[in-house]
């Protein structure tokens, strides 16, 4: 690890920390949107399995029928 950072000189630790935190924050955002999306879809499928569907006549529903 020390060898890997050596080319970046005396401030290598600051550079490595900045990139590590950036990777963690971005990975966190990606995981959050993926898990949240999967959670919403699971709950929607669960409701539809119980026979609850989107309201007929809603704006979305009208659009669905048109397209």
């Amino acid at each position: 690890m020390t060898d890997l950072l050596a080319p970046f000189g005396e401030h290598a630790g600051f550079i490595a920390a900045a990139y590590a935190i950036a990777v963690m924050v971005i990975a966190g955002l990606i995981v959050w949107v993926r898990l949240d999306g999967a959670h919403q879809l699971r709950q929607l499928e669960d409701l539809e399995r119980r026979g609850i569907r989107r309201q007929a006549g809603s704006a979305d529903d009208m659009e669905d029928r048109r397209t």
Binding site: D36, Q40, Q43, L44, I52, R53, D60
Partner: peptide
Amino acid sequence: NEVLRRRLRSMQAR
């Protein structure tokens, strides 16, 4: 995700 969340909420209320 937010669109799905709102659809879910309206279906649950219904």
